[in-house]
Structures are given as C-alpha cells and as structure tokens.
C-alpha cells in the first residue's frame, strides 16, 4: 500500500488542517493508501518510510532542518505544501532587511534560546523538492489533483497562469481599475480568485506567476496612490525568497 506522510515544520498548521478538510477525498483514500505519519490528525505515527511525504512550514530551526533531511531520505517523493514550505512564507518577508541577530534581539531580547535558529527558508534551500503546492493555505482541489496524479504515476501539471485568469473568467470587476491594490496580475493562480470576488485585492499568497511584470505593477500601485516603498512591501508579504533580489527598472522583458 502506498505510504503517505504529512508533516509540519515552522508554520501555522493551516495547510495540514486544509488537508484534513478534504473530507471526501480522504474518505476515498483511506483503505487505498496508508496515512503512516500525520501527527496533527492521528495518535499512532510511523516515520520509517514513505512513498509521498507532504511537508508544511518553513525551515527555521535546526530541528526543522534535521527532520526535513530525515524525511527526504525516507521518502520517494517530497511535496512542499503551502507558501511557507515553497517560498519561506510571511515569516521570511523581511529576510533581506535585517540581520538574524537584530531579529532575535527584537523578539527575544536577551533570552538565550536552546535551539539553533536561522532566517526562515523554503524547503528547497535544504533538500530537493519534487513538487510545490503554494498557497496560504494550499488549495484543496490542487492537493486532491496532485495526490491523484502521483498515485497514478503521472506528474501533476501546474501552468503558472496569473490570478487574473480565474478572476476575469468569474466575471469579477477589475479591482486595480477601481483603485484597489491587487496582486492578481503577478501572482500564480489556482485558488479560484476568492479574494477579489469579495472585493479584497489579491495578496499574492501563491507566489509569482511565470515572468511577472513587477515594473508595471509597481507603477500601477503608485498611480493609485501607494508609495513606492509600500508597493514593494505589499508585494513582498508572501513571496519570500522568490522576490528577493527584485530589481526595479530592469526590463524583465525576456520571458525565457
């Protein structure tokens, strides 16, 4: 029987909860696969070996790192679930603005920590990751599709289409045109654009679409009244590692 593991590193466990929310799918899966390791959901867990290991959260401590490296060794496939695991998550949005010492000082003062901590990083900084399912939290349908594909020996297919695709096709009025900051045009879709449908601009929780045009989106933000610094901060919230090193003014022209 296919052995599946679901483990969490530094994060809110929201993605694991979201996996638990896939009730229909889990109902169908039980009996066909073995949830060998899923501490959030069950008491008896076995960390020995896996066919597919889903990992949530960013790598922020030596415990995270050791567990991840161990998990990688024991699993044929490793899938990063959620934005923390894929890009570093919200906890890494200021990684390039302060040193680790400054951060520790600000949070813990002079208290000595008995574990090694570092700036939050995505799984791919530590181990090889086979697939990434970003999102805060991850999208249930994508999780189900990924599990179904992998169980059938097929790689899942995720074209990095912008959120505008799903937003426009659900006939939501464009928020940018109404003057509401929205990251739809530079963010990876797959969520079904629920935020824009309820009038909240896309926060980019699923990271970059293919070759995002940051120059233009920054210029639009400034046109609708955001300062340049606020515009950049807005973009940085969820993008973690994938936006650091953003050079504004570079043409970003080449798509390949």
């Amino acid at each position: 029987m296919v052995r599946i593991g679901i483990m969490g590193l530094t994060g809110c466990s929201g993605c694991q909860c979201e996996i638990l929310n896939c009730e229909d799918a889990i109902g169908k899966l039980i009996g066909k696969v073995e949830f060998a390791y899923f501490p959030l959901a069950q008491d008896v867990n076995d960390f020995s070996e896996f066919d597919i290991l889903f990992v949530e959260g960013s790598v922020s401590t030596n415990l995270d790192r050791e567990k991840l490296i161990e998990g990688r060794k024991r699993s044929k496939l490793l899938v990063a679930v959620g934005t923390c695991a894929c890009y570093g998550g919200v906890q890494s949005q200021r990684n390039d603005e302060a040193s680790l010492d400054e951060m520790l000082k600000a949070v813990y003062g002079d208290t000595k920590l008995d574990l090694e901590v570092f700036k939050p990083m995505p799984l791919s900084d530590v181990v090889d990751v086979d697939y990434e399912l970003p999102g805060c939290p991850l999208d249930k349908r994508q999780f189900v599709y990924t599990v179904a594909s992998l169980l059938n020996g097929v790689e899942p297919f995720f074209p990095k289409i912008p959120v505008c695709h799903e937003c426009k096709l659900s006939e939501t009025d464009c928020l940018l045109l109404k003057g509401i900051p929205c990251q739809g045009p530079v963010s990876f879709s797959g969520c079904g654009a629920p935020c824009t449908a309820s009038g909240v601009g896309c926060q980019g929780c699923r990271g970059n679409c293919d070759f995002p045009n940051f120059d233009e989106i920054l210029s639009i933000y400034q046109d609708i009244g955001l300062s340049f610094d606020d515009s950049v901060k807005f973009l940085k919230v969820f993008r973690g590692k994938t936006i650091s090193g953003l050079k504004v003014g570079s043409s970003n022209e080449k798509g390949a």
Binding site: Y145, A148, F157, P159, P162, K168, C174, F211, G255
Partner: peptide
C-alpha cells in the same frame, strides 16, 4: 503588458484552450 490574459479572456472571438487528463 502584465501578461495577465484579461484581453483574451474577455474577447468574444478568442478560442484557445489547454487540455489535461485528470485521473
């Protein structure tokens, strides 16, 4: 251009599609 695809998605004559098999 943001490559957001809005222009083609709202177009009355655009017809391109992608096909995927979902097991």
């Amino acid at each position: 251009c943001l490559s957001c695809g809005t222009c083609t998605n709202v177009c009355p004559t655009c017809f391109c599609y992608t096909s995927i098999d979902v097991p």
